[in-house]
């Protein structure tokens, strides 16, 4: 599979609710110590589903390499 050029990034104000976990088709998200969501950059394909559902609106889809 071709490597996606995009990647999800989680902002500082994540509330660790876990809404994003449920929609990620790649299982690329986990909640670290109940504090914040963390994206596995190797697994993320930048589809943006997590960003659309995030109730805190803290996920942005960025180009790989740009501030990873």
């Amino acid at each position: 599979m071709a490597v996606s050029l995009k990647l999800a990034q989680v902002g500082r104000e994540c509330v660790a609710c876990g809404s994003c976990l449920r929609v990620c088709p790649r299982g690329a998200i986990h909640i670290r110590s109940g504090v914040t969501a963390q994206i596995d950059s190797g697994a993320c394909v930048g589809c943006g589903r997590c960003a659309k559902i995030c109730p805190a609106d803290v996920i942005t889809i960025v180009q790989r390499g740009a501030g990873e």
Partner: peptide
């Protein structure tokens, strides 16, 4: 968004606070 309540839910704020303290 569907789970907007989770952003300011007092239980969610408290549990995240406990996790941050830990």
């Amino acid at each position: 968004r569907p789970r907007s309540w989770c952003v300011y839910c007092p239980m969610g704020t408290m549990t995240q606070g406990i996790c941050k303290l830990r």
